[in-house]
Design a protein around this nucleic acid. Sequence first.
RNA 1: GUCCCCAUCGUCUAGCCUGGUUCAGGACAUCGCCCUUUCACGGCGACGGCGCCAGUUCAAAUCUGGCUGGGGACGCCA
Length: 437
Amino acid sequence: MKSSDKPIVRFAPSPTGYLHIGGARTCLFNWLYARHTQGKFILRIEDTDLARSKQEYLDEIIESIKWLGMDFDEIYYQSKRFDLYHDYAQKLIDSGKAYKKDDAIFFKYDFANVEIDDLIRGKIVFNELPKDEEVIIKKDGTPTYNFSCVIDDALMKMSLVIRGEDHISNTPKQILMYKALGLNVPQYAHVPLIMSEEGGRMSKRYGATSIREYKQEGYLAQAIANYLLLLSWSPGGNREIITLSEAKDIFEIKKVNKTAAAFSMDKLNWMNGEYIKKTGAQEYVALIEDYLKGKNFLPENTGAEYLKKVALLFKERLSKLSDFIIRARFCFYDDYTYDDDTKEILERNMSKEVNILMDKFSKLANFNKEETEKEFRQVAADLGLKARDLVHPVRVALSGKKVGPGLFEAMEVLGKDKVIARLKRLVDYWNANTSKQ
RNA sequence: GUCCCCAUCGUCUAGCCUGGUUCAGGACAUCGCCCUUUCACGGCGACGGCGCCAGUUCAAAUCUGGCUGGGGACGCCA
């Protein structure tokens, strides 16, 4: 490329599956590079496998890219460019570098040392190649990946090809094709693969792999993008949290590591929690509402104000939005059961104490967190109990859970009637299941 | 099997290019303490690493070679 030319890079997914973690990160690196260099970012749909390509996948890939916060300047479909590939295959035939056999076209090459000058890895030298020919047009007339990729990268004037490390071994064949056609060879930057937590290949067996699944689990786009960025790249300065727009200012492809990185769900969860915490209250509530509506979780008559109060109760405690469904369910439904891990707390029958508490609570004029806390502590003190001794069973009574938001805040949100009804429910449970102490 | 890539705490990484400032810094996870109404949050702290062997050098995580280990590619899939 001439130095005056704008950098041009591309992300080239195949719509034969959803956008997965590895693809998303390759896309991210390409996008970051393009935006950092004020270059052009092309999305090229490699839909040459007509049988396996699906519109549904294509739509989802584009949606995921946008959802993650990226955009692209141009989009091309290889399925609309078959004529082009045939023209170039014919050129190879005409020059004696390819031949037709069984309706397919083979590119025939002489072995030669091939060198790749990789921006991330430096010089890679291939001393030999396993074969001396390569199918470029299949017998059904469709081009093979290595061929259409070369033609398009050349015609679209790609200055740099940023792609996964798994393509290193394709590169020498591709370079041979560029040369046979007299086309310019782009520069390369092969980024490391993302490994599963166990160190092996990322696959469905190891849980969610597609971006949409993470979205459905309640991960925020910015958190995923940020986390993915930290795999094989670092902003330096001991920084972990960085937005895409900050990253694009400092991103340099040469600073990408050579080492494959293992995906850590723990760290993603932590990061997602950080993003939830730093989301503004209003935006957070909207996020929760959207998420819950998508999951069809909310009862019909849930008021907006109530939802907001409940949502805020949990803001600092979620690592992903799906946690809310489990942890806040008791705020929307009365049919919860006592969790297994509350067994120890339930073993102690405190119906007498809880009855006293119910009585006091029922007389409270303002059932807010200040008043309930005051009354609660008074009852505990009068009974010679530590507040915590009463807190645990009351929490279980109200939520069925051992853990949850601040007890008095939760009571205020739930309201007097529900609180008393639920305390009564636990007393009944005790009376039916345990002997009085 | 052949070809290729890689190698700093369990994991993600800073440092490596331009050897001494590093008895290697940060983050996640784990553990402990503090705060406290449980969990969480927050604060503090602990644990834990330059794969091995040679070489170069006054000096190596940093340079070189070998070994070992991990990964990838060898489809008329992309």
